[in-house]
Amino acid sequence: MKRIVVNERPDWKAQAEACGFTIHSMYGQRYWDERHAYAFSLEEIETKLEEPSARLLEMCYAAAERIACNGELMRRMAIPPAYHDAILRSWRNREHDLYGRFDLSYDGSGPAKLLEFNADTPTSLFESAVFQWQWLEDMKQRGELPSSADQFNSLHERLINAIRVLAAPSGRMHFAGMLESEEDLVTLNYLADCAVQAGCEAKLIAMPDIGIDDTHWLIDLEDERIDRLFKLYPLEDMVREPFGRHLPLTPTRVIEPLWKLTLSNKGLLPVLWDMFPGHENLLPAYFEDDPRIGGLGDRYVRKPLLSREGANVTLVNHEAGSGIYQAEGPYGEEGYIRQAMHLLPRFGNDWTVIGSWVVAGQPAGIGIREDDTPITRDTSRFVPHYIES
């Protein structure tokens, strides 16, 4: 794994706008950053990222089984008791999920370490699946990269195939989210386009516009029943809102399914460590009321059970500087876990995290983000990668 300085394409912004990647810059700063790229060997991709991601996913499915069958564990993870039976039913029925993203710390040596699993509503999907592939093809055509350069990226094809299965037998799927969020809209438009390429009928709908009929079907603004609903909206929020009480009753198949509540929670990390202690791709992690947290010493990471984009994560006595480093945010009242300190690798002045995507139960590619701080946030930059021949 190397970070390579490369030339920016002079027309990259125009290309981004043309293909709908309107969030190439956010908060007045560049989000897409192609001034450099990360180079990997094929063996490194296969043995250090792809194979560990497959193993981690299998371990997560085993953890989902344990959590879904254990009401006390679900309560410890702040999953509302009213949904425990529905979660177990959803898991037992093997309701299909679509995708997720492991955040991994890897620097080219040693095993990749799982920092967390974004199992429900991860973004940065379009730039991972489409725009960095377009970058690769352009760079090869311009002679900036060898013609033999490749990329760990089967996201687009896997998403199309997975959506085709999820939408069956009707072939209709609604895609819902907070449409005023440009980042969410880019992701939803992309997934809807994947559905069209899969031969399905796709409709976009705002979350507040979803209704419910007398038989608990979710309906759209035309009172049409929603057969399949992909929602780019957190399950942990839905189950705490009035709308959520309909989820265990509705015949609408909601994606991600309710059992994903067992994985979209930082409580997954101590469960994994308890089930697979010492695994090379895991870090020691414990619920905060577990007396074993003393084994972490005075250097650890404190994470809320429910948190996104690094919010309310605290690094205690990290190597990057003495004392505490904390990202602000609205989370934490549900409780915390502690995880062994394992800082992201630093390339130049940037801290780098690898997002390893899984689609329909299979590893599907990576996306890399950089930040000026050791906590990856919503202001982090996306950097492309390639595989050297």
Score class of each variant (00 low, 15 high):
residue 89 R to F: 06
residue 321 G to Y: 11
residue 291 P to M: 04
residue 33 D to M: 06
residue 116 E to N: 00
residue 210 I to D: 06
residue 262 T to H: 03
residue 196 V to M: 12
residue 50 E to C: 15
residue 163 I to A: 09
residue 212 I to A: 04
residue 210 I to C: 00
residue 119 A to V: 00
residue 120 D to P: 12
residue 69 C to N: 13
residue 341 M to F: 15
residue 311 A to M: 13
residue 144 E to A: 13
residue 271 V to K: 04
residue 291 P to H: 02
residue 103 D to R: 07
residue 136 L to Y: 08
residue 214 D to R: 12
residue 332 G to Y: 03
residue 58 E to Q: 13
residue 14 A to K: 10
residue 230 F to N: 02
residue 232 L to Y: 09
residue 337 I to D: 00
residue 134 Q to P: 05
residue 79 I to C: 05
residue 45 I to A: 01
residue 164 R to P: 07
residue 81 P to H: 01
residue 357 W to D: 05
residue 185 L to G: 00
residue 47 T to E: 13
residue 365 G to Q: 06
residue 218 L to P: 10
residue 220 D to G: 08
residue 180 E to V: 09
residue 249 L to K: 15
residue 167 A to G: 14
residue 156 H to I: 04
residue 128 S to P: 10
residue 183 E to V: 00
residue 167 A to Y: 06
residue 138 D to V: 08
residue 52 P to T: 01
residue 115 L to E: 06
residue 86 A to K: 05
residue 288 E to I: 12
residue 60 C to N: 07
residue 148 S to L: 10
residue 200 C to Q: 04
residue 24 H to T: 06
residue 294 G to S: 09
residue 23 I to A: 14
residue 86 A to W: 04
residue 272 L to H: 11
residue 214 D to K: 10
residue 35 R to S: 15
residue 345 P to S: 10
residue 23 I to V: 09
residue 68 A to D: 05
residue 69 C to Y: 09
residue 291 P to C: 04
residue 279 H to T: 03
residue 138 D to L: 12
residue 308 R to P: 03
residue 265 N to Y: 06
residue 136 L to D: 04
residue 233 Y to F: 14
residue 288 E to L: 14
residue 76 R to C: 03
residue 382 F to D: 01
residue 234 P to L: 09
residue 18 A to N: 07
residue 195 A to E: 03
residue 30 R to E: 10
residue 116 E to G: 07
